[in-house]
Amino acid sequence: MLAGLSTNLGLYLGLSAVFFAFGVLTVLTRKNAVGLFMGVELMLNGAALNFVAFQTFRPGTHDSWLHGHVFSLFIIILAAIEAAVALAIVLRVFAARRTIDPDRATELRG
């Protein structure tokens, strides 16, 4: 039953869909800015997994350029930048408001 499990593109895509969907769910339900951020990370991971899976199963032209891997690498790097900036903002908001509930830091809302 397990045979060929690792060679099934659909499974990887399904898993990345699950990651993405639960990321969306996390962003929608969490009342904590850091929690929101974790949801975003989950979504990014789902997308990156997708790229790598397609690189393995459907390399396309210029196989040796590893488009999928490189794209995932850039996703991970940009996620790191995002983490630094987002968490700096979270700490500032907490210092000023004593809460990081995004629903309550709405001073700039037009």
Partner: peptide, 20 residues
């Protein structure tokens, strides 16, 4: 989240993307 990231890392390994 740590475990989900670890699982993605493991799947990268399975898919032959060691560096990733």
């Amino acid at each position: 989240l740590v475990f989900s990231l670890l699982s993605v890392a493991g799947l990268y390994g399975v898919l032959g993307a060691d560096f990733l």
